[in-house]
Design a protein around this nucleic acid. Structure first.
Length: 331
DNA sequence: AATAGGTCCAACCGCTCGCGG
DNA sequence: TCCGCGAGCGGTTGGACCTAT
């Protein structure tokens, strides 16, 4: 295996490029193409090694390079591809026109990795981190304590006891759901698909407030931002979903449209299940039931009491499968 | 206003791959 | 088939910039 000679050995310049050097490089490549990178510096009148020139061109000077913040779509694409390809930055970059592998790598290391860690997801495996989940009861307890402090300043003691008891029941549900999530995470082979659940859970458990749960007596979830893409397309919710956002959908089975509002979820066994429109999230062994859905044009939907994707593949929120059909969000 | 710590990103380093002689 | 070379890739670094105290 040969190795490119180090720039130091030839007394070539290293470090940041000057505008003059950039100009020489761009001018030369526009005139002659890059050809042999090794020969290019001499031909272009640059005191740099070919490697440095290639890097400067591919990462910075190439005219089709897109600069600026990564969009939500790009972010989701990176997360999705990384869950499949790992640190194959160049492979990932081929799916993001105008983005360089270096830029994607930097974006991953400085933003996405931290974001996943904060959500309790291992950035390498894309699976929920057990150490984080292990500490959830403490985190929840901490949240309860905070809530208790707030309540105690405004309510009499007896009322506290009643409310706290109700909250304890809800927290128990939360923890129960967490166990389900962990179970789904460890049994599924689709690592990417676990993000949605982990995202959803981590967001709601770690970031949402206990008072919210207390008010609604259900776990608040929604489809988050309405999109025009099919719901089976993996979408990572990078923020807390808004439980009040309704959505319309169209089935790919027969093209009928429907509407869903007050999209809430309760744990299994809760009596709030509406059998005419109860939905099951896929891939959870004991899926929580979604209730309080209203379908303006139920069509095939109302004829089925529950829907699932046969427990396979991606339970990635907000995808919802029923039978062999896919719903498209058309909100 | 000063400064310490954190963040970001362009550029470098060293390794592997693939091609050609 | 082997070997040398150039190119490409992923990991790491250093310094500029930002933010909190």
């Amino acid at each position: 295996m040969g190795r490119s000679p180090c720039c130091d050995e030839n007394g070539l310049k290293k470090g940041p490029w000057t505008p003059e050097e950039d100009q020489k490089l761009v001018h030369h490549i526009k005139q002659h193409g890059h050809g042999s990178w090794r020969a290019l510096p001499r031909l272009a009148g640059l005191n740099r090694c070919g490697k440095s020139c290639r890097l400067r061109w591919t990462n910075y000077l190439k005219p089709d390079i897109k600069r600026g913040k990564f969009s939500q779509d790009e972010e989701q694409t990176i997360l999705h591809l990384h869950s499949i390809l790992g640190n194959k930055w160049s492979a990932i970059a081929t799916h993001l026109p105008g983005r360089t592998d270096n830029e994607i790598k930097n974006f991953w290391n400085t933003h996405l990795k931290k974001k996943l860690i904060q959500m309790g997801i291992d950035p390498m495996t894309h699976q929920p981190r057990t150490d984080i989940f292990a500490s959830l009861p403490q985190l929840i307890a901490l949240a309860s304590l905070r809530d208790l402090v707030e309540i105690s300043t405004t309510h009499p003691l007896d009322e506290h006891a009643v409310r706290l008891q109700a909250e304890a029941a809800q927290l128990a549900k939360l923890q129960y759901l967490q166990i389900l999530v962990q179970s789904a995470a460890t049994t599924s082979n689709n690592s990417y698909s676990q993000n949605g659940i982990a995202d959803m859970e981590a967001s709601n458990l770690l970031n949402s407030s206990v008072p919210h749960i207390k008010e609604n007596h259900v776990l608040p979830f929604s489809l988050g931002n309405a999109t025009s893409q099919p719901l089976h397309h993996p979408t990572l919710l990078s923020h807390l979903p808004d439980p009040q956002v309704p959505f319309s959908f169209q089935t790919s089975l027969n093209g009928e449209t429907g509407h869903c509002s007050n999209f809430t979820m309760v744990s299994p066994g809760d009596n709030q299940t509406d059998n005419s429109s109860s939905w099951l999230l896929p891939s959870l062994t004991l899926p929580p039931t979604v209730t309080e859905t209203s379908l303006s044009n139920p069509g095939d939907a109302s004829s089925t009491t529950s829907y699932n994707n046969n427990g396979a593949a991606s339970p990635y929120w907000p995808e919802l499968y029923f039978e062999d059909s896919v719903m498209h969000d058309i909100s």
